[in-house]
Amino acid sequence: MTKRKLRIGLIGSGFMGKAHVFGYSIAMRVFDLPFDLELHTIADITDEAAAKAASSLGFARSTSDWRSLVTSPDIDVVNITTPNTLHRDMALAAIAGGKHVYCEKPLAPLATDAREMAEAAEAAGVKTQVGFNYLCNPMLGFARDMIAAGELGEIRGYRGVHAEDYMADSAGPFTFRHDPAGGGALADIGSHALATAEFLLSPAAGPITQVMGDCVTMIKERPDGKGGRRRVEVDDVGRAFLRFANGASGSIEGNWIATGRKMQHDFEVYGSKGALAFSQERFNELHFFSTDDHPGRQGFRRIEAGPDHRPYGLFCVAPGHQLGFNDLKAIEAAAYLDAIAGHRSEPYNFRAGLRIQMLVEAIHASSRAGTWKDVG
């Protein structure tokens, strides 16, 4: 049976742009996708950069004009992997053209913008996806199922952190991430910690209902690339205490100056009957503690990823051989394509992306006010 062709347009060829392409390429070989995919057009900042990216990534066409890409009648899905402040205009233009939109996180620096994007997509009836691919790890899905099934008992506490050191050098230049419109560390990577907290705990503990934030700027200024210095106003570290609907409490941290950390996305969940611990630095493992174990034999046991943790088995028939970062992107892309085909709901749509931005803004507001804030 011949599958319908789905034509992909990508804006941005950097780290996440490549990850999207790798995700599609892997997904085409691992999953029984509902479409045949065509890498149609890639847009970048100059014609030369776009042409070079098209050649290396396998796109048939290239352009320096992203507007021509999002309005092209030959493109079905627009992927946005550009600086955060550009997401809104690009997504709204694509939605107006009837395109499905796959946008990297954070969805938009402001909740008002994210809401406009979500409402526009819903009104147009297009399918959307926000790139929170860490949630696609089979071990996180397994952890969520354990929590929802009551294996940890009553959920009492949570700790989450996303820490990296890509901004730890004070001599590093001012970038789009340091612009007040860009969001800061909490929005940039703390959003992953928030998304993970609610993904795991919502079935058993409910959503986050209150936050107490502490957002700090440690590196006050940076080189502006023109021989001068520019003041930094966004947070280098964003932390928050959390309260969940069932009364459980917890904390999260987003930190881009965590010296020595390259990819720490960790969580711990504490319940009345057991606990879970996870680190992205060893993300094919989940550690489980059970109070049912006999005294003298208690301790965290390691659960290694394997074919029993879907969809690991589609990648490898042997347990313990491990998935990689781009495999998570493939899982995310495959689920989104199934949603476009109408086979399932969207895995993490713009409405869900709006929810994370609302949490980020509530934490920022709490930090400024020095008090707890309710989250609607």
Results as ranks from 00 to 15, higher is better:
residue 8 I to G: 04
residue 98 G to W: 14
residue 340 I to Y: 05
residue 290 S to R: 15
residue 177 R to F: 02
residue 42 I to F: 11
residue 125 G to V: 05
residue 90 M to C: 01
residue 189 I to D: 01
residue 311 P to Q: 12
residue 331 I to R: 04
residue 8 I to L: 15
residue 368 R to M: 08
residue 295 P to N: 01
residue 199 F to M: 07
residue 83 P to L: 06
residue 255 N to T: 07
residue 319 P to N: 00
residue 371 T to G: 04
residue 41 T to M: 11
residue 170 S to C: 06
residue 257 I to C: 02
residue 307 P to M: 12
residue 104 E to P: 10
residue 232 V to F: 01
residue 275 A to R: 13
residue 278 F to C: 01
residue 258 A to V: 07
residue 15 F to V: 10
residue 362 A to V: 00
residue 278 F to Y: 15
residue 235 D to L: 01
residue 277 A to N: 10
residue 338 D to M: 11
residue 182 G to Y: 02
residue 270 Y to E: 13
residue 224 D to K: 05
residue 134 Y to F: 10
residue 2 T to Y: 04
residue 189 I to R: 05
residue 5 K to T: 10
residue 125 G to M: 09
residue 364 H to M: 09
residue 168 A to G: 04
residue 282 R to G: 06
residue 141 G to V: 06
residue 354 L to M: 10
residue 141 G to Q: 12
residue 336 Y to A: 01
residue 339 A to G: 12
residue 373 K to H: 08
residue 144 R to N: 11
residue 341 A to C: 03
residue 141 G to I: 06
residue 4 R to I: 03
residue 62 S to N: 14
residue 221 E to T: 09
residue 170 S to K: 09
residue 270 Y to T: 03
residue 154 E to Q: 12
residue 324 G to A: 08
residue 209 T to L: 06
residue 103 C to N: 12
residue 196 T to E: 09
residue 210 Q to T: 08
residue 214 D to L: 05
residue 323 L to D: 06
residue 229 R to Y: 10
residue 314 L to R: 14
residue 151 E to A: 13
residue 84 N to L: 05
residue 44 D to E: 13
residue 42 I to P: 09
residue 152 L to Y: 03
residue 252 I to G: 02
residue 199 F to E: 13
residue 140 L to Y: 00
residue 236 D to F: 11
residue 61 R to S: 05
residue 114 A to K: 14
residue 86 L to H: 13
residue 138 P to S: 09
residue 306 G to Q: 11
residue 215 C to I: 01
residue 172 G to T: 04
residue 216 V to F: 00
residue 280 Q to E: 12
residue 126 V to K: 03
residue 195 A to C: 11
residue 225 G to I: 04
residue 126 V to I: 12
residue 23 G to C: 04
residue 164 E to F: 04
residue 269 V to M: 06
residue 363 I to K: 02
residue 174 F to G: 06
residue 97 G to M: 10
residue 185 A to E: 11
residue 184 G to F: 08
residue 233 E to A: 13
residue 251 S to D: 12
residue 268 E to I: 11
residue 332 E to F: 01
residue 363 I to P: 03
residue 245 A to L: 14
residue 165 D to E: 14
residue 35 F to R: 03
residue 351 R to M: 07
residue 137 N to R: 02
residue 118 A to I: 14
residue 326 N to K: 09
residue 131 G to S: 13
residue 323 L to Y: 05
residue 334 A to E: 07
residue 160 G to P: 04
residue 248 A to C: 08
residue 176 F to Y: 07
residue 334 A to T: 07
residue 39 L to D: 05
residue 121 A to R: 06
residue 174 F to Q: 06
residue 108 A to Q: 02
residue 182 G to F: 09
residue 135 L to N: 09
residue 7 R to T: 10
residue 228 G to M: 11
residue 101 V to Y: 00
residue 25 S to A: 13
residue 268 E to G: 06
residue 169 D to M: 04
residue 320 G to I: 07
residue 25 S to E: 06
residue 276 L to P: 05
residue 339 A to T: 15
residue 130 V to L: 04
residue 227 G to D: 11
